[in-house]
Design a protein around this nucleic acid. Structure first.
Lengths: 204, 204
DNA sequence: GCATTACGCTACGGGTCGTAGCGAAAGCTC
DNA sequence: GAGCTTTCGCTACGACCCGTAGCGTAATGC
């Protein structure tokens, strides 16, 4: 999770409790201060650790916030709700609920902005946040194909392109709705969105 | 454009050339330094003005970057390409081209992130950036309804909801594709996206 | 000429950054 | 337990940027 796992056998091990305390303190600071006013010294004080300890584990503010926000997406699940439409609506509502939390709102866009000039940071975001949501897309599609709601795609390249497209449309629309337009992704909106997306995907 | 227009008649007028120089210097600094390393002192030096002059016009980094990025969206147009699909593909490609420029990539997401905790900043973004794109959506839809490609919507409330949905889906997907997934919104992707969106909107 | 406002310049206190250095603590191996 | 290794807390530090105050000068309208 942190910068690197030294895999060293000897010596005093790093405190796992400190990790959890730092990440929790980071989220709390994001809620109270937002991204721009958040300082690493403040986070260290909140977590009850020394500032130097924090710098020994994370290279900077960006990496720390990515890890702190990534844990929020652990709760995303895709239970079988019987139909593809219900599955999509369910996961979109979950996603919207996460984006409704201030620690996610203020932190997520900031690290994405910074990742446009930092390839390592982009990869970190991709691995710890985006990848987790992408699995849900693939799972939902496979389930829908098993139900017969979506046609099977024999070409793996074409299948990957479709998966990317669905992912960008779902995640992009929800993020834009909640963070840019500033309106809630409530059930009514999610139903309309799902209807348009699903019709577009299933009609020849 | 700047913080406020005093509409004063007497005294030395503000230099319009300084405004242009400051905004151009801001975009140049965004390209070379990105959002986080950009400092107002550096922008003032690049623009050839005193730092105090910059602070007299803009309240801070956020507002300055919003105005600097907003000018990039002035070039967005929606010429009549004959069909709704062609119109959408054209404007999406224009939008993607803007997001491909580093001064837009690094600045836009950063101010959006900050706007989650600053209502005034959100309104500034909405008025100077989002509103401009929204007009294109409304224009394109009206044109399509005139062509008979989209059904007329008598209910203004329902019509507004549909417009918001289209806007969030288009802008959200393009932004997510280019800035989060980190893949190009090229012609092939735009064609697939437009096909899904348009099929979803036109099928009953 | 006179009032008024904008401008350039300098200087300043305050805050944050990221690092260095130290002694103490907590593990592992023997 | 002895000894080794790594982490931890703490303090201190130079460097940078922030945002503002103060002053003299420049540019406009009356």
């Amino acid at each position: 999770m942190q910068s690197r796992t030294p895999a060293s056998r000897t010596g005093r091990p790093r405190s796992a409790a400190a990790d959890a305390a730092i990440l929790a303190a980071t989220r709390q600071a994001l809620v109270e201060l937002g991204w721009s006013r958040l300082t690493l010294g403040d986070v260290a004080t909140r977590a009850g650790v020394a500032k130097t300890t924090l710098y020994r584990r994370w290279a900077g503010k960006h990496e720390l916030v990515v890890d702190a926000v990534a844990e929020l997406f652990d709760e995303l699940e895709l239970p079988d709700r019987g139909s593809l439409a219900a599955d999509i609506e369910g996961v979109v509502l979950q996603f919207a609920a996460i984006l409704d939390r201030p620690e996610a709102r203020s932190g997520l866009m900031a690290v994405v902005a910074e990742s446009t000039r930092d390839d390592a940071l982009r990869e970190r975001i991709r691995a710890s946040i985006v990848e987790r949501q992408m699995r849900l897309v693939l799972l939902g599609r496979a389930r829908a194909q098993r139900r017969g709601e979506l046609p099977p795609e024999p070409d793996p390249a074409e299948s990957a392109r479709t998966g990317d497209l669905i992912f960008d449309m779902v995640a992009g629309a929800v993020v834009h709705r909640t963070l840019v337009s500033g309106k809630p992704a409530d059930e009514e909106w999610v139903r309309s969105f799902t209807r348009v997306l699903l019709t577009g995907l299933t009609s020849p």
